[in-house]
Simulated scan of single mutants.
Amino acid sequence: MIAGHWSVVVVGGRIAGATAAWALAPYAEKVLVVDASQATSFWPQQSTWDRDGAILWDDLGLLDTVLACGAPRTYGHTFRFEDEVSEQDYPQQDGYSYRMTVPREVLDPALLRAAQSRDNVTVLRPGRVRDIVTRGGRVSGVTVRHQGVEHAVSCDLLVLADGRLSRNADRVGAVPYQVIPSPWVAMLAYFADLPLPTDRGYIHLERDNVAISTPCGPRQWCVSTDMHQAMLDASGRHPAQEFARIIAEDPHIGPAVALGRRITPVGGAGKLRMHRRPMSGPGWCLVGDAGYHLDPVVARGTKVALVGAQLLRDRIAAAGDVAGAVLDGLTEQRDAALEGDWELAEQACLPAPVRS
């Protein structure tokens, strides 16, 4: 039965939401995950992390889950800046010293299945939150629409993990306190059977675009570009056309994709905005892009989701259960933990010289 009381309601069942549901389940009587997407959705997005991310996955108890997604570990990459090429190897400090990239349509369902494996986690998909209920200035529940029926749900904690465009974050009054427009447009597609290394990535940096290839599954690679908006404005071409041109002209990726095959559409996003919102308030908490969105050009979105889930879990674990947890100060903790990542993304969003 959906209507009634739940210890935690998580809105969004992708990386941030599924991870939060998994992490909070040991401290909750019942957890309800409400996810609006269809099971067959294709997301032109990838999840990328390095040693720090692997350590976070392990701390959250999900490392085996993400490794089972089948993406190979990479231990370095070829770096090209214009005509100069160098080989970068990642320092081997311990067993976490690798980089990994997993398509989101592979990783996100795996995480949601892990959350559902907890006996006290229920997933509604597709489902939507139609309204948020407050009592005495505190969030006390939501109205959930599932299969054409609306259900009144009360909760001790509402976790919003429904992405950078979260309307629910606006509803609870989580107004962004910092917003930075991004000049980058990100595009990607997945390819199979490329004659490329399975344990190394590739990065080609130009003044107005970046081309990247990285292994992401059995005989699969993600090929992506980040393009400066000024370059697109000057060319007048659609981002997908520029993606095809950049990839075809790349001396490393171009010959490889000519011999392999593309297995997904080309997709992506542009005109994005970085933002920071308060992480918590009376009866609610934001994890992932809903509360803290970095430009994808720096590949730190997964870390943001994991840090938020970890901080929330640790605060609730310290209290012993969800109902007794005090969430004050989470915003400051999150911002301190991610300050270096924010600064890196902020630098990437500064005006850059673009070839004429």
Rank of each mutant, 00 (worst) to 15 (best):
P183M: 01
V179Y: 01
T198R: 15
A169G: 05
P197S: 02
A186D: 06
F191P: 02
L165W: 07
V175F: 00
W184N: 10
R167T: 08
P197C: 03
A192S: 15
Q178N: 01
P183A: 01
V185K: 01
R164N: 06
V185I: 13
D193I: 06
I180S: 01
G201Y: 11
S182V: 00
S182E: 09
D199T: 15
L194T: 12
A189D: 11
T198I: 14
D199L: 10
P181C: 01
P183S: 01
P183K: 01
P197Q: 03
Q178I: 01
D193W: 10
R171P: 00
Y177P: 00
D170Q: 08
R164S: 14
L188Y: 07
R200N: 12
P176K: 05
P176F: 08
R164E: 12
N168D: 05
I180R: 09
L194N: 12
P197A: 03
V172Q: 03
W184G: 10
D170N: 09
Y177G: 04
F191S: 07
G173A: 02
L194H: 13
A186H: 09
L196K: 13
V185N: 05
P181R: 03
F191M: 07
L196H: 14
L165Y: 06
D193Y: 09
R164G: 08
L188D: 10
L196P: 11
V185G: 01
I180P: 00
S166G: 07
A186S: 13
R200G: 11
Y177M: 02
V185M: 04
G201K: 10
A174G: 03
S182Q: 05
L165P: 00
L188E: 13
L165M: 07
D170R: 07
F191A: 12
T198Y: 05
I180V: 14
V175E: 09
R167A: 09
G173R: 01
I180W: 02
P197I: 08
Y177C: 00
V185D: 03
S182P: 10
G173P: 13
Y190L: 14
P197E: 02
D199W: 06
A192L: 05
Y202I: 09
V175N: 00
N168H: 10
R164P: 09
L188I: 11
A192C: 07
Y202H: 14
R171Y: 00
D199H: 15
D170M: 01
L188P: 01
